[in-house]
Amino acid sequence: MIRYLTEHYELLGNAFAEHLWLVLVTLVLSLLVSALLSLVLIRSEKASNLVIQLFGVIYSIPSLALFAILIPVTGLGDKTAILVLCAYNQYLLLRNILTGMRNVDRNLLEAGTGMGMSSWQLLRTVQIPLAMPSILAGIRLSIISTTGITTIAAAIKAGGLGTVLFSGMRTMNVYKILWGTILCVVIALIADLGLKQIENRVEKKLGGMRTEA
């Protein structure tokens, strides 16, 4: 097992790096998209529910099917993969960002508006900071989900650890399958633990302020 790792260090390392790269690019892009969408959607509860439901439907389409549908449009490779992964992430991110911002106490918003804060100032200084725990939870979920689904993206030649897994399955190479799985879990675990840590810190900071007087 260890020998397999030392002998195929390069193959596994490359796949790992590719995988990490795909997850990162997906995360950055989907955060940008969801941030923009949230800014538009925060104004209308109806519209946000509709859009979240729409992404919920997309989220429920199996990834292999969605990749296959898009091949005629965007072709094989990482572009198609990232597009699909971003679409999946919107469901997780939008839901968390928007509920986080909506759950901010209405009285705070009324007090802020009443004293002359513009809706943008309220968003920036009150709603987003108070929604941070929920936003971070969304990011954590989306990294974990992306890490998993990216393995399937190897089927459309997007690279990553999925390549190792698929070739392991074809050749019945248990070591390959095991190492592919372990490395995936490593990415997900590190992201999970790291973000949990940040979440706890933010939560603690907000929590200290919320202890009932």
């Binding site: 106490d105 009285n107 705070l108 009324e110 007090a111 802020g112 009443g114 004293m115 200084t125 009150v126 900071p129 108070l130 900071k205 907000l206 302020m209 919320r210």
Partner: peptide, 11 residues
């Protein structure tokens, strides 16, 4: 403007 619920920003 002062309201009954006060509305101080908790953070």
């Amino acid at each position: 403007y002062v309201i009954q619920q006060i509305g101080l920003f908790p953070h």
